[in-house]
Design a protein around this nucleic acid. Structure first.
Lengths: 236, 236
DNA sequence: TGTACATCAGTGAACGCGCGTTCACTGATGTAC
DNA sequence: TGTACATCAGTGAACGCGCGTTCACTGATGTAC
């Protein structure tokens, strides 16, 4: 009995390879023209296939988008995890800042992929459940940092949280394994959305005429802001 | 000599009216199907025009998008200014929170328009300079609140700002009339991008499985976070 | 090891659709004398 | 107040394009005996 993970036949191996090539080509198109312009026909053309052949591998356009979304979340997640892993576990502040910088670095290098996952939703497209796990990789890194900080006894006096707000974040509390007080969970959420707010503003052009254009200015500005966010997390 | 603002002839009046109808119809389409699906032909069809007739009013598709972008910024700006105006001038915290809530209320009521101006840029489209002033209305409200607060002597000890960061925000300093210290300008920027980060996350689906779905939970969560942001501004 | 059948990848044509934009035109409105 | 000309709005046909998806088909690969 062959295991289901080891493809045996030439057909199976070819299928996996070609599916991968489709994904790579689709990613190239996404990078060049954005998600809205992504077309099955164009991808097939680039691979020297007739347009209908691609339907042997991809049931329709939406599923190709889903593949790209998962791919983008995983690419971002892998980069961020790798960067964060290099930092001393006790250096909570530095772990946070490294995480933020890794997200920004990835976003600048992959603007269309960033827009695909953190920009406006593609109209008429509903993300299926398979995207949830890859989408959680960055939040998971952030929460782990908070848990580590919290468990080492660095517990600032928590701000009280209204019951309605506490109820609102029940899912998040579960995701964090119930290891963090509501106050810290909320600060974590604030940090998370500040991080992506800052990057979206930069990438989507809202810093024009506000923060100088040069990449060193942009980086200095971003780092400054994330250090302030870290203060809000009491990581400083 | 008739003033240039008062249209005299029937032709001129018709032109203004029809241009307005085009904009309204385009906004309806935007609301239903998003910016990517916006088509000159469809707008013309809805107005009972032949598709080529619309070119008497709009030079091309991009310029219609520009009109919609300006329209959206102005709609948001007007709502926010109106809401903020009702608050006692001395109540700086409440002015800030009211502003945040007005932005969110507008965004929830006009999700596609919000996505058009704060979501991923439309690929191949470059916003012209005419969008700058309408886009500055919300930032202007926020800065005015900070200036009022600052001028009433509520000056917390400023965090020192690195020279590179200070240089980076030269444009912003000018926009604020040089009335605010760098530290406060940066806190204002942080507040601004936190505000839009929070709304984008909510609108673009990133709170699914994190913050409970009901509108009262979402509102309670948002208000809580904005109150924390206000603390960072030392408005509390 | 060889044969018969089943599975699957890739072909090529087609359906039906919608788009942005141009162009020569007709007929109504506006202007100058 | 009336006429001659200029301006402009709207028409209808056309160009050239690309898209997603289906379908009957051929021929290669895989499987069971």
């Amino acid at each position: 009995m062959p295991t289901s993970t080891a493809p045996s036949t030439a057909r199976e191996r070819a299928r996996i390879e070609i599916t991968q090539e489709i994904l790579n080509t689709a990613r190239d198109h996404l990078t060049k023209d954005g998600a809205a312009a992504l077309s099955l026909r164009a991808v097939a053309r680039d691979l020297g296939m007739v347009s209908s052949a691609i339907y042997r591998y991809v049931p329709n356009r939406d599923s190709l988008l889903t593949m790209l979304i998962i791919d983008a979340y995983d690419s971002l997640g892998a980069d961020v995890e790798k960067a964060e892993r290099t930092v001393r576990r006790e250096a909570h502040l530095e772990r946070f800042l490294t995480t933020c910088q890794a997200v920004r670095t990835w976003a600048l290098a992959h603007p269309q992929e960033y827009a695909l996952i953190y920009g406006s939703p593609v109209p008429g497209y509903a993300a299926p459940a398979d995207t949830i796990v890859p989408a959680s990789r960055v939040p998971a890194v952030l929460i782990t940092i908070l848990i580590d900080m919290h468990s080492r006894g660095r517990q600032p006096k928590p701000t009280p949280v209204e019951p309605l707000v506490s109820t609102a974040i029940a899912d998040l509390r579960m995701f964090s394994g119930g290891l963090l007080p509501d106050d810290l969970l909320l600060r974590g959420m604030a940090a998370w959305s500040s991080l992506f707010g800052a990057i979206s503003f930069e990438l989507f052009g809202h810093l024009h005429n506000v923060v100088a254009d040069g990449s060193k200015y942009r980086k200095a500005y971003f780092d400054h802001q994330m250090r302030q966010v870290a203060l809000g997390l009491r990581l400083g």
